[in-house]
Structures are given as C-alpha cells and as structure tokens.
Write a protein that binds this DNA or RNA. Structure first.
Length: 155
DNA sequence: GCCAACGTTGGC
DNA sequence: GCCAACGTTGGC
C-alpha cells in the first residue's frame, strides 16, 4: 500500500509548525467536522506525510511537513467540560471525535502561500483550492511533491 | 471586522 | 427526509 499524502490546517495562533517543531509530536485535537474526522479515523496511516497549513493568518499557506506518528484514537478534549473543544455529545463510551498524532518533519524556509498555489495550473484540482473549508484533506502525491519543491526553494 | 461559503441542527 | 436557520471557517 502506497504511503498517503494529506493536508491539515491549523491556525498558527492556536498551534503552529513552530510549536510542532518545539514539541516534536502532538495530537491533532479539535477537529469537529465529520468528513475531516473520517479521513483521520479511516484513512490516515502511520508514516503518511502531511502538509502543515497555516490558516487564518497573513499570508495563509503551507508552512512545512509533518508525519502521522499514531493512528486514530478518541479526541479526549471532547470529554473535558473545561476544554474549549468540549462536546457534550461525545463521551469515552461512545467517542464522536477521533484524531491522529503527528510528528515534526520539516519547516519550509518560507511559507508556500495560498496565492502562489492558486497561480499554478497543475494544482488547480487540489482539494485545498476547491473546498476551502475542509481542514483535513487528501493531497495527490504529485501535488505534494510540487509543493515540497516550492517550499524548499528548489524549483 | 466583514462576509461568502458551506456544514450542521432541528422543526416539521 | 426536507430545508430554513444558524454557526463556523477562513480569505480578504
């Protein structure tokens, strides 16, 4: 089975690639969208590579690479009444939300901006550019490679 | 801060 | 099961 490629969004004010670099590894808490959850729960496998996207910032874009380090398990922040991601409809006996852990791989010297991605014809079918609100999404291997080249400044 | 896009909820 | 109202995301 070929290695999977994904893109995951985070607001850097909440959790940035710099935070992941410092921490080394982190649980991807707080996804409260079914499609994004299903992707994490059903499709993401240990070792898969992830584009780490910074959203709601200036400029938005891909900041680096992470790797799935633990496959899906219940998002415990949903059980914690005092946590901002608390969801009363989820509980440990019937967890509604799942997440993966990711580990730091690489931070790009410069963010590959959303604007730059939009300018490339070969990326026009990217889920990112067509379903702007989906926070965990698949990326084609060739799209992934192209963005990594841009991020490393090697193209 | 605005607001378009769009996912979710809940009344019926 | 439809769909209007509502809430959230996320670019600008």
């Amino acid at each position: 089975m070929a290695k999977g490629h994904w893109l995951m969004k985070s607001e850097p004010k909440v959790y940035s690639i710099e935070d992941l670099e410092r921490d080394g590894e982190a649980p991807w808490t707080g996804v409260r969208n079914y499609e994004a959850r299903n992707t994490m729960r059903d499709e993401m496998r240990k070792g898969d590579l992830v584009l780490f996207y910074h959203s709601s910032t200036t400029p938005p874009g891909v900041a680096g690479i992470a790797r799935v380090s633990r496959e899906a398990y219940p998002d415990f922040t949903a059980f914690d009444r005092d946590h901002p991601y608390f969801d009363p409809k989820s509980n440990p006996d019937a967890p509604r939300w799942h997440m993966v852990d990711v580990e730091f791989v690489e931070r790009f010297p410069a963010v590959v901006t959303l604007q730059a991605l939009r300018e490339l014809e070969e990326l026009e079918d990217m889920v990112l550019l067509n379903r702007m609100r989906l926070s965990v999404q698949p990326v084609r291997p060739e799209e992934f490679e192209r963005i990594v080249e841009l991020g490393r400044g090697t193209s």
